[in-house]
Nucleic acid binder design. Structure first.
Lengths: 331, 331
DNA sequence: CTGAAAGCGCTAACAG
DNA sequence: CTGTTAGCGCTTTCAG
């Protein structure tokens, strides 16, 4: 019981009594075929359930009309938005999206880039862990757009962390806090570095103290160690690398009888699903992740059409979502 | 500034001083090549950065070594596990996974199946909204595996809702509840139907009353209407279509001053990220979503190798995760 | 406007 | 064990 064989261009040609090249033209250059023959060909094709074979097209043209999106962890809710946006952008452009999970592992990322390379027209790399040098080498073979990572010479879509971190610091300052503690994530994280740099600069500007602790695992499980460190340091305001860590911190604080926001204010990054229903609901910096995914796809698609040596960097606005986890400084 | 041209098998052959077919064999049938020449070929290939062109392979073999996974909504945390599992399963089998979002829309799903059909070896359809008839027609052209949907003649991976719902009912019964209210989701949902059928049967068996309300939007936003209906009915235990709805219900109950689990016990389905840190943490039926994704990929892959007219249905165990949202009947 | 023929990169016969 | 040859399905010259 073999799968029914698909009709090929030759089958259609035979059934329509024309040459294969005419069938091909009827589909790809409708203008260059007699209206009458074209309609006949299309009718026969429809009847045979003919659909062009993308592999054959790709072989000839070198274009697969496919893009790959690589993310460090598919289950991380932060990337869900990027994936959705990329999916939407690809669909809008008639492109197919291939999804890869790099397991936060640079080697795996490199391998995927290599393996998928010949099968796709370009890559969207979200939160890439690859060194700049390697990214540029890969970009030499395939157009690449980066999400939340900036590498000179490559197309990038990044969140406006400068503005975002300033919003956070202003918010805490207006609540009377005199200092903040940043609970850091993975040291290789480009976003993490930008977040800390922004916080520190904005804090200095505002006359607030800023200290970095960590690195911590950017997940619920990392919260206990991070919270304990913050308590020991007598922090009144903590800003966590991301929402999962922030929520983990709040869980631990509750366990240790520390009130949020009464004793300590907690702020996160990402505004993931759940930041709205954790307890208390989390104040966090929202990024436009869907837009980032869509823009990155656009950028790659543009590069596929015409290579430029200086592709654009796009900065997307961020906004602080104030919820109940942040409040006035105690005392 | 055109992209650097990729090395082909011919380039490698020339550089290594062998025939193209030898290079091909060195990769695909390592045993049929002299160890010495093979190592030389592989070294040259490595140096040239050669990677086989999947399109060319596909053209020749008719196999694309690619599977498509279609889900109703990529951002729904429930599907994150399925996606991850499918990704992992595909990677383990050396297959590439294409991801499609059907936007909960049968027409869009059908279109994706048609467009992607010639480009992939098979489909994993998660929570498909397509009618049985159309699924069977599609399965005629491409192997298909279904996740949480059963259609005779197709490979299926489903959660054991019979056992799961019995666990829920037993749990509530042991807490002294005499009846439960089911807050239903979309009427077309196969899982939803199975969940209600299971609850009702188990409740009857146990001598509990069971009523269904709804349908509600299976999201946080659906919670208000669902909660209000449950309160009006004087329910002591509610079981929601999924965790998002359950959490939405708890949010609304808190707003109305109804204590969970003091006044009402709440149970969900899915055990999504967030069920552990909402307030109170949610009692819910966990499915093995990652395993489901991986198994479905396996099933498709098996069908690609050898078609059978009666593919297997796999039932995966479910387990009740008891947290603090469920408690003794009041009074 | 249409047909014939060449080849995209690769693999599977078939010789040697 | 390895080279030669013939396509896979499609697009694209190039003639007609």
């Amino acid at each position: 019981m073999p799968p029914r064989k698909r009709a090929t261009i030759t089958d259609v040609a035979a059934a329509a009594g024309v040459a294969a090249s005419t069938v091909s033209r009827a589909f790809t250059h409708p203008g260059r075929v007699n209206v009458h023959t074209r309609e006949h060909v299309l009718a026969v094709a429809e009847e045979l359930g003919y659909a062009p074979n993308p592999a054959a097209r790709a072989l000839e043209s070198g274009r697969t009309r496919t893009l790959a999106l690589l993310v460090p962890d598919i289950t991380n809710p932060y990337f869900a938005g990027v994936i959705k946006g990329a999916e939407r952008g690809a669909a809008a452009a008639g492109l197919t999206l291939v999804l890869g999970d790099t397991a936060e592992n640079p080697a795996q990322e490199a391998q995927l880039v290599r393996r998928l390379g010949p099968a796709v027209d370009g890559f969207v790399l979200s939160a890439s862990r690859l060194p700049d040098e390697e990214l540029r080498r890969a970009a030499d073979l395939n157009p690449i757009a980066l999400v939340n990572r900036a590498t000179p010479g490559l197309a990038c879509v990044v969140a406006d962390f400068d503005s975002g971190t300033r919003q956070i610091v202003d918010h805490l300052a207006s609540l009377g806090h005199h200092s903040l503690v940043f609970l850091g994530g993975p040291p290789e994280s480009w976003s993490g570095a930008r977040r800390w740099a922004g916080l520190r600069a904005a804090a200095e500007e505002r006359g607030l103290g800023a200290t970095r602790f960590g690195p911590y695992v950017p997940a619920l499980a990392g919260g206990a160690a991070a919270a304990d460190a913050a308590i020991a340091a007598g922090a009144t305001a903590v800003v966590a690398h991301n929402d999962m860590l922030a929520i983990g911190v709040m869980l631990r604080l509750a366990e240790r009888g520390v009130d949020v926001p009464g004793d300590v204010s907690v702020v996160g990054f990402d505004n993931i699903v759940g930041a709205d229903f954790c307890n208390p609901p989390l104040t966090t910096l929202a990024e436009r992740t869907e837009e980032a995914g869509a823009r990155a796809v656009e950028a790659v698609a543009a590069q596929v059409l015409s290579r430029t040596d200086d592709p654009p960097t796009r900065v997307l606005p961020t906004q602080l979502v104030v919820r109940r986890s942040s409040g006035p400084v105690p005392g």
